[in-house]
Design a binder for these strands. Structure first.
Length: 511
RNA sequence: GGCGCGUUAGUAUAUCGGUUAGUACUCAAGAUUUUCAUUCUUGCAGGAUGAGUUCGACUCUCAUACGCGCUACCA
């Protein structure tokens, strides 16, 4: 029996170790966030390592995408790819010598062995034996260094035959994982198979090998990763033991999975497609297929809102506080408060967070994000004017991307008028009234919202008109629909000339 | 099939054996806003099931059900 029930006293060092096989999944973002927060909370280091041991699944651009995503989100690394550090290299494909050495140690000590079985042979055995597993019960009937003579093994290797190195797992041993989140998990080594650790074909280790070796040499103190790794943790523990590193093995914390917003199963990129929502932080263009996957950033989500929403999926500060900055998260975060159950990715709640963050964000910062969009639509306008629009509109939108559609009337006159609004407010004597109002507006010198409002209200009163009728008819004429902020803020922004021009145009088009 | 993990309202969660089971989102109603949105108030709605331990269980134990993950020369 082995277990890892020891106190961790080393300095905190954690890592996020994605594979560059595509865009960074939102679940990966949460894992990165938790690692980052844990490091910040404990004054430790957060390391970004790239696990590119599977050469067949490498996708160009994926690594840069990961770096860009973390940067956009504000998750800063202390060490790793594109930053450097004392424990590099941080790309597994550049650490081959280290793995080779460790494989040799395992081989020499008899904790691992060489196997020549081809994929086809394994396939055949799987077909003939139900529940086939390459383990103690069948390894002696396979083509490996346990069943062949030394000379035969040497001959095969020298002749260039491809092989793999497998971990030799002793059956009948209880392995107890003391997981920070899940407590004690017991697995018997008899259910484990002799996992492949190294492939001669590409001179690369598999994930399990590289992962353990790197975590050791990078002095990782806590491995915080997704629940899908829980079943292979016993193997990892056995590896630490076989390499003589058991005493400094990191502590484990397995996070619950992120589930689909509806239905069953974990969140996949297909769900985003199906439900029309992004599952990736940034827009991603598949370099092979050419498909374009939407990103949260391009959809108008704020990184701080996304992070705030994400941190609460599987963790909570222990009270009712929901809105918190990344600094607050870092000071509040503990692995002990992480949940065990998978959490559904609920877009409605995310949208609410985004709305809250937009409301809180300073006008000029939103304006900086909005200004390029306005320019794209061919409108030339000063930054101060954009700030003014943002001030009036920001609490009325959930996304930055909604800003243009909901406030373009500030920049371009309405091309058409909303049917419903017309039906409700542009009826009876509306045209006649607005025509009179138009003359009155023309006589006004100041379009300051307070002054003009007062003047117009007095005008309405002396004429004995219904306030709503007049104000809303004017709104429809200026905006094109019965929506938008306070009317006199609009007339102030538009100014006398533009206001009159729009009123006249409405009069001519709607009479 | 085997092994493991999980299960509080529609969703995210609080509760470390004693509560009228709290909060937020969603939804509904009302108020405010002479538009729309915002905002405010109120409301709807929950411990998977069955045993056991206990004076007392959402909380501990076991079983069942359901869900999920892993079971590759992928991570």
């Amino acid at each position: 029996m082995i277990d890892n029930k020891t106190e961790e006293t080393r300095p905190v060092r954690v890592r996020f170790a994605p594979s560059p096989t595509g865009p960074l999944h939102i679940g990966g973002v949460r894992t990165a966030l938790y690692n980052y927060l844990f490091a910040r909370k404990n004054g430790g280091d957060f390391i970004l390592r790239i696990e590119d041991t599977d050469t067949t699944r490498f996708v160009p651009g994926a690594e840069q995408y990961i770096v860009d995503s973390l940067k956009w989100l504000g998750i800063e690394c202390d060490e790793g790819i594109s930053i450097g550090g004392d424990s590099g290299p941080y790309r597994q494909s550049e650490r081959k010598e280290i793995y080779r050495e460790c494989v040799k140690i395992l081989l020499d000590s008899g904790r691992a062995y060489i196997a020549f079985d081809t994929p086809q042979e394994l396939e055949a055995r799987r077909a003939e034996i139900p529940n086939f597993q390459y383990d103690s019960t069948i390894r002696m009937s396979m083509r490996n260094s346990l069943t062949m003579s030394k000379n035969e093994v040497k001959r095969l290797k020298d002749s260039g035959a491809q092989y793999v190195v497998r971990m030799l797992i002793e059956p009948g041993c209880d392995i107890i994982i003391n997981d920070i989140i899940r407590g004690e998990v017991v697995v018997n080594s008899s259910v484990l198979d002799d996992k492949v650790l190294y492939k001669s074909a590409d001179d690369m280790p598999t994930y399990h090998m590289a992962n353990v070796v790197d975590d050791h040499y990078m002095q990782i103190s806590h491995v915080i990763r997704g629940e899908e790794w829980l079943p292979s943790t016993p193997l990892h523990m056995l590896l630490y033991k076989a390499l003589g590193w058991f005493d400094t093995m990191p502590k484990f914390a397995h996070l619950p999975l992120l589930l689909k917003p509806e239905g069953r199963g974990k969140l996949s990129k297909r769900d985003g497609d199906r439900l029309g929502f992004p599952v990736f932080p940034l827009e991603w263009k598949d370099p092979v297929e050419g498909d374009i996957w939407p990103g949260f950033r391009e959809r108008g989500y704020l990184p701080e809102a996304l992070l705030n929403f994400l941190v609460l999926l599987g963790w909570n500060p222990g009270n009712d506080q929901e809105l918190m900055s990344i600094d607050e998260m870092a000071s509040l975060f503990t692995l002990e408060k992480c949940g065990k159950a998978g959490a559904r990715f609920n877009y409605t709640k995310l949208d609410w967070f985004n709305h809250e963050y937009i409301k809180r964000k300073p006008d000029h910062e939103i304006a900086a994000l909005f200004a390029p969009v306005i320019a794209q639509h061919g409108v030339d306008i000063s930054f101060e004017r954009v700030v003014k629009v943002v001030q009036m509109m920001k609490e009325r939108v959930n996304f930055i991307t909604e800003l243009w559609a909901k406030s373009k009337f500030f920049f371009v006159p309405p091309l058409k008028y909303d049917e419903k609004s017309l039906k409700k407010w542009w009826k009876d004597k509306a045209a006649e009234t607005i025509s009179e109002l138009c003359d009155f507006l023309e006589s006004q010198n100041s379009f300051d919202s307070v002054i003009l409002e007062q003047a117009v209200m007095e005008w309405i009163e002396t004429r004995g008109y219904a306030v709503g009728r007049v104000v809303n008819a004017l709104r429809v004429a200026l905006v094109g629909a019965a929506v938008g902020p306070k009317l006199f803020l609009i007339t102030e922004f538009l100014g006398k000339e533009e206001t009159l021009s729009r009123v006249r145009r409405a009069l001519s088009m709607l009479s």
